[in-house]
């Protein structure tokens, strides 16, 4: 019975582990977001193939903007 009693130490240990978990999740999200920003360079991306598709450039070409 006594072993189940929550000690203050457990609370702190849980808080610390929870905090580290949150930091790691946030870091993963940040690197993912950063990757998207770097890869897209501010434009839209379609990631299902790796070949050049002129269709993606047409709106820009039609508008006369490079």
């Amino acid at each position: 019975m006594a072993i189940t009693i929550e000690h203050e130490m457990h609370k702190r240990r849980f808080g610390r582990n929870f905090g580290v978990a949150m930091v790691l999740i946030a870091f993963v999200a940040l690197v993912f977001g950063l990757t998207l920003a770097k890869v897209s360079g501010g434009g839209s991306i379609q990631g299902f193939d790796h070949t050049y598709r002129p269709a993606l450039d047409q709106p820009a070409a039609a508008g006369g903007v490079n």
Binding site: A2, I5, G15, G19
Partner: peptide
């Protein structure tokens, strides 16, 4: 039977301390 409450304070830091 060991009572967990009798343990010495470990000085373990909480997340806020870091």
């Amino acid at each position: 039977m060991t009572d967990i409450r009798s343990f010495e304070q470990t000085g373990e830091a909480g997340f806020g301390d870091y």
